[in-house]
């Protein structure tokens, strides 16, 4: 018997209406019998999907082989660098050198990927900006004003500029890949490169980075900011895990060891004693 969920805005009555009463369309496991995801039987209706198609269906309810192929391509080209110097990958390498587990290494690496200077914040922020910019363009605002306003408010525009290096080597391979599957010339992708043109001509000289390219390609498929965020959550795993394995294969503690001189202390020079007049 399904209990009725009363629409209560707040307070303990809201919690009471949910006690042992989780009503959902998302899915469920029927022990020893079957599994349902978003109204479809997993074993009979979804078992022929690729993992990425299943993943995207679970996240958004969308079924699209082409979108799944695009997301896979974006992951592979953009976020799967097996270089342990990259901060999220380095966490996994450190876990490997300390002989932690692969899952813990990867979970930590994924968590750290929700970063500001790279990773999930620019990924979500880029597509969000493309949608907001498009809306303002449709309202008649000039692109330059839109970009300048974003810079004035937030000092950065997600998707443009990059730490360590200005050029993004991933842009051309991703656009080539998009072209190979019949994508890459939609309005949001074009806008992403229009914005780069403005930056290149400005004193900032920012170049487009992969987040804006991925954002353009996905927005052209109707993907929303939160959907791209969901898709991208695991996107770094392809680079994270090899860094753990590489570290695990080498001697314990051997990953980038730091001797005591590698600490540059810039605090107080006095040596103090606890409890005396400090």
């Amino acid at each position: 018997m399904t209990k009725k969920i009363i629409n209560i805005e707040s307070g303990p009555e809201r919690l009471k209406s949910f006690e042992d009463n989780w009503q959902t369309e998302m899915g469920a496991w029927f022990p020893g019998e079957r599994v349902v995801l978003r109204g479809k039987d997993v074993f009979t209706e979804l078992s022929q999907c690729s993992w990425m198609e299943y993943f995207i269906y679970g996240l958004t309810g969308k079924t699209s082989t082409k979108l799944a192929r695009l997301v896979e391509g974006i992951w592979l080209i953009s976020t799967s660098f097996p270089d342990p110097r990259l901060w999220n990958n380095r966490v996994a390498a450190l876990a490997g050198t300390c002989r932690s587990t692969g899952v813990l290494a990867t979970a930590a690496g994924v968590g750290v990927s929700e970063a500001t200077i790279y990773g999930l914040k620019p990924i979500k922020g880029s597509i969000d900006f493309l949608y907001r910019a498009t809306k303002k363009l449709e309202e008649g605002k000039p692109l330059e004003k839109i970009i300048r306003n974003e810079l004035k408010t937030y000092r950065t525009v997600y998707g443009y500029g990059r730490p360590l290096t200005s050029a993004d080597e991933r842009v051309k391979p991703l656009m080539d890949f998009a072209d190979s599957i019949g994508m890459g010339d939609g309005p949001y992708t074009k806008l992403a490169f229009e914005i780069e043109k403005w930056f290149k001509a400005s004193r900032l000289k920012y170049q487009i980075n992969i987040a804006a390219v991925a954002a353009g390609l996905l927005a052209d498929c109707g993907v929303l900011p939160e959907e791209e965020y969901y898709y991208a959550t695991l996107s770094f795993v392809g680079g994270i895990y090899p860094c753990y394995i590489d570290s695990l294969d080498k001697p314990e503690g051997a990953f980038m060891p730091l001797n005591t001189k590698r600490i540059r202390y810039v605090g107080t020079n006095e040596t103090r004693s606890w409890g005396s007049k400090q």
Binding site: T2, D20, W22, Q23, E25, A28, E33, G39, E45
Partner: peptide
């Protein structure tokens, strides 16, 4: 485990093989 706590409101039902 909340064995009786979940209701699937769009259950397609068992599939006949």
């Amino acid at each position: 485990f909340f064995s009786d706590g979940l209701t699937l409101t769009n259950d397609p039902g068992p599939v006949t093989h």
